[in-house]
């Protein structure tokens, strides 16, 4: 449904995208997962025909983003990261405006947005600018769907949204996907990867990995432990020193300890920490998450790109 081949793009000296290639199948949710500044928005703008790629090519449903941009625009729904509806038009006026731009009527396509629109209906005469964050997002989604696109592109719909509203938004996306829509979505929230069919992990304009979230976590190359102790911050530093190539970082109420050696056991970690004088030590094996994979890939890549990687770690003494 979407084919991206060797896309490169630079803004002046700043290489925003390097050799980006991936395919999205019809009817899947494909996630571009990475922090702000990874190049996600640049890629979205190229795919939405708003920016010409420096080099490389992309087709959406067989239509080329450069050559066929006019036709393509009628086939895609694009929800940019920034709220970009008309703030001084009401909810219904916005919908009607976007429908008319694409030569359709709200009535003929009402069924596409009904699920979401019912939640907006109480506010249909309110100006878009006066809506709460969650409602703005729902309106933007309706406006992106009203012309019956085949592909929906959402650039960071979850940014600034609380975790519960975020989950509800993803429920909506899954229902749209189940209705046959192909969805490309970007997010800096690693936990959202689990709700995609496949994801690309993006960092500094490179794709570090592409796979299903399950395959990504299954391929995590280290043995992972969840560790707890009273002095959390000394714990992390001590764990880092346990063996070369090991990584340790805070992970909610635990610290995650990723060990390169497959032989290491819970008891080994416990013993090491007891020798270091830690109290309240609890160690268990942990299932890696996409966030663990991302951190692992980032640490691996840190030698390659000196300019973009953080200049030094700041650790609590």
């Amino acid at each position: 449904m979407i084919n991206v081949l060797n896309i490169n793009h630079a803004f002046g000296d700043n290489q925003a995208l390097t050799d980006i290639s991936f395919d999205v199948q019809a009817g899947e949710i494909f996630g571009l997962i990475g922090p702000d500044g990874a190049g996600k928005t640049t890629l979205f703008r190229i795919l939405a025909t708003l920016l010409l790629p420096g080099s490389g090519s992309a087709t959406l449903n067989g239509l080329d983003v450069v050559r066929d941009y006019k036709t393509l625009r009628t086939r895609i729904g694009y929800m940019p990261g920034r709220f970009s509806l008309y703030q001084d038009l009401t909810v219904d006026e916005n919908l009607q405006f976007f429908a008319s731009v694409f030569g359709v009527t709200v009535e003929e396509n009402r069924h596409l947005i009904n699920d979401i629109y019912v939640q907006l209906e109480p506010f249909k005469n309110r100006r878009a600018g006066a809506l709460s964050g969650g409602m703005k997002q729902k309106l933007a989604l309706c406006c992106a769907l009203i012309h019956k696109p085949q592909i929906l592109m959402l650039d960071e719909p979850g940014t600034g949204v609380d975790p519960v509203s975020r989950r509800e938004f993803w429920d909506m996306l899954r229902r749209l996907r189940d209705g046959g829509l192909t969805i490309l979505v970007s997010t800096p929230y690693m936990d959202e990867a689990a709700w995609c069919n496949r994801v690309a992990l993006v960092q500094q304009g490179h794709i570090m990995a592409i796979d299903t979230p399950e395959a990504l976590t299954a391929a995590f190359p280290k043995k992972l432990f969840a560790v707890r102790a009273v002095d959390k911050y000394r714990l992390i530093n001590d764990l880092r020193s346990m063996e070369t190539g090991a990584n340790a970082y805070a992970f909610g109420e635990f610290a995650h300890f990723a060990s390169p050696s497959a032989k290491i056991q819970v008891a080994d970690v416990e013993l090491f920490l007891q020798k270091k004088g830690h109290n309240g030590v609890e160690v268990k094996e942990a299932e890696p998450t996409v966030e663990d994979c991302f951190i692992d890939l980032m640490t691996d890549d840190s030698q390659q790109s000196t300019v973009d990687s953080p200049p030094g770690e700041i650790t609590l003494k």
Partner: peptide, 13 residues
């Protein structure tokens, strides 16, 4: 918000 997972942790440090 929007910061990569490693930097996010350094920020908390």
């Amino acid at each position: 918000s929007g910061v990569d997972p490693l930097t996010r942790r350094q920020f908390w440090d």
